[in-house]
Computed example of a mutant assay.
Amino acid sequence: MPQLPLGFLWGAATAPHQVEGNNVNSDWWALEQTMPGMQHRAMIDTALDLGLTPVVTLHHFTQPRWFADVGGWMGDQGIERFAAYVREAAGILDGVEWVCTINEPNMLALMVGMSRAAQSGDIETWTSPTVEGVTRPVLPDPDPKVAARLAEAHDAAREVLKQRTGAAVGWTVACQAYTATPGNAEKLREVSYVREDLYLEAARGDDFIGVQSYSSQAVDENGVVPHPKRPDNTMTGDAYRPDAIGIAVRHTWETTGGVPILITENGIATADDSRRIAYTSEALDHLFAAMDDGIDVRGYIHWSALDNFEWGHWEPTFGLIEVDRRAFDRRPKPSLAWLGETARSSITRS
């Protein structure tokens, strides 16, 4: 374990819709909206009371149906409406030190594009990016026009948050840790730009950039190489690549020009918890090696705290805590204690 900087964050991430759902037809849902002490601010206060440091993400893929029905992000008032939401949310962010405006805008841009294509009849169905088939599917490139729009929304949100909170502000990018096959360095730059670098460059004025990394993909003369089905693949069809986080962090640091990094997601979909520990241990070795080389990394947040609804199905299990979907029991896995001990060891060495 290296000498980590004071204040280095250790944690695990969760997303309410993916874990608990949003049962708006329940009388208890209505009660949550009106009963003192049960609103979303209560979660922040509880975290602070427990000595936890909340890292709040304001947009994690889902959005109001009415917003989508009037054009969503690409609508005439998309930016204004998002900024209005951020102004309202800022009112409960007192004491929150880290705020992410938008989760994985490069994936969000892809989803916006696919939704528009489905509505126009250009594609018949929306396919989950984590359904394992014969090969790991290669997703289409996000639309750069959508990327520009999301960057505009991010800028508007950052301005609001800077005026109304004392939080560090950034957004998080899905980093694929692309590598070039021999002779294809130029194609790698082309692919990286449209799929990641547009979003990393938009973070150059931010307080931090969130890196979300799981695996790596090769790029040949035709683009991203479909990952073949192999015995050691993860439950989502990804390659087992704990080194991906090091590749992603180094690329992010170079592309942003030195914006501080917060690992906001890293993990593995596996039913074998010993494999989760092995993957995470090696991933941390690669992360610490990058830090030893002078890259400013402020923390590591594991995905995910609990097994969750992952891109349309329950099967891929990323959690440090198992969830029984019938009885709703939650059972800590050995990886939870292992990560906790790893964090405690680093604190004593700081």
Rank of each mutant, 00 (worst) to 15 (best):
F309D: 03
F309A: 09
E310S: 08
E310H: 08
E310A: 10
W311V: 11
W311Y: 09
W311M: 09
W311A: 07
W311L: 07
G312N: 11
G312T: 02
G312K: 14
G312E: 11
H313N: 10
E315C: 00
E315N: 05
E315T: 08
P316M: 03
P316D: 05
P316E: 04
P316W: 01
T317N: 07
T317Y: 03
T317W: 03
F318L: 02
F318H: 01
F318Y: 14
G319N: 06
G319V: 05
G319S: 10
G319R: 08
L320G: 03
L320I: 03
L320W: 00
L320M: 15
I321P: 03
I321E: 06
I321G: 02
I321W: 04
E322P: 03
E322Q: 11
E322T: 02
E322C: 02
V323F: 05
V323H: 01
V323A: 05
V323S: 02
D324W: 06
D324I: 05
D324F: 04
D324C: 03
D324A: 03
R325Q: 06
R325N: 04
R326C: 02
R326G: 06
R326W: 11
R326M: 12
A327K: 08
A327G: 06
A327I: 05
A327P: 00
F328P: 01
F328S: 10
D329Y: 07
D329M: 08
D329S: 12
D329G: 11
D329L: 13
R330D: 00
R330W: 10
R331G: 05
R331H: 06
P332K: 11
P332G: 12
P332R: 08
P332T: 15
P332Y: 02
K333Q: 10
K333V: 04
P334E: 07
S335L: 07
S335D: 12
S335M: 08
L336V: 15
L336N: 06
L336C: 10
L336G: 07
A337C: 09
W338C: 01
W338V: 12
W338M: 08
L339G: 02
L339P: 01
G340I: 09
G340F: 01
G340Y: 01
E341K: 13
E341Q: 15
E341P: 09
E341Y: 13
E341N: 11
T342D: 09
T342N: 14
T342A: 11
T342S: 12
A343W: 13
A343H: 14
R344E: 13
R344G: 10
R344P: 02
R344W: 15
